[in-house]
Write a protein that binds this DNA or RNA. Structure first.
Lengths: 86, 86
DNA sequence: AAAGTTTATTCGAATATTTGAATATACTTT
DNA sequence: AAAGTATATTCAAATATTCGAATAAACTTT
């Protein structure tokens, strides 16, 4: 990963709503509706952030009946970054 | 550090030019002129990025005669983040 | 199949970031 | 003190990001 890719990855993480989502997902998978509950914002906006996170390879999801379950694609990497800030 | 502060810190890092500067400074202090040499851009622009990095507590500097020497304020933290991406 | 849930997409306005240009400041040497 | 070198600041234009509003899509239950 070169510095351009790293900066893209960090930029995707570096939004308060997205980071909040990431922190939540670092404790386990969640569906969109539950994630929306954490955020002061609309479901559509949460979906926008989730699709950006997916585009950058930070999260992925699987259909689960009616719902979609999001999870971190590389939880180890994310957890390492988060623990640096504690 | 809460998620707002963390996202601000990550945002400050998450620009290709600034990350390049940070990576360079992780190997030791450098003056503005040397840093400018790394970047495809003007000295004034490098100064802009450096002052933003300083504002966010990522770097600091000391006057060194004619020149200003920039260095990472928390090199351990930065190095931990960078090694995650290798 | 109609109604209800859950999630995604598109678009435009508001906002934030980035950059170059111009110029200022500060220190050093002559 | 004038000229030279190194760095910083300000402003405006260009660009990118973010969010709400509207609505679409997909699945589930009735």
């Amino acid at each position: 990963m070169d510095y351009i890719q790293i900066s893209n990855y960090l930029k995707a993480m570096a939004h308060p709503t997205r980071l909040k989502i990431i922190i939540r997902l670092s404790r386990g998978p969640q569906c969109v509706n539950d994630i929306t509950g954490l955020i002061t914002g609309r479901q559509a906006n949460v979906s926008q952030h989730l699709s950006l996170l997916r585009l950058h390879g930070i999260v992925d999801c699987r259909q689960n009946g009616n719902m979609k379950c999001y999870f971190l694609k590389n939880p180890k990497l994310i957890k390492k970054i988060l623990t640096v800030f504690q």
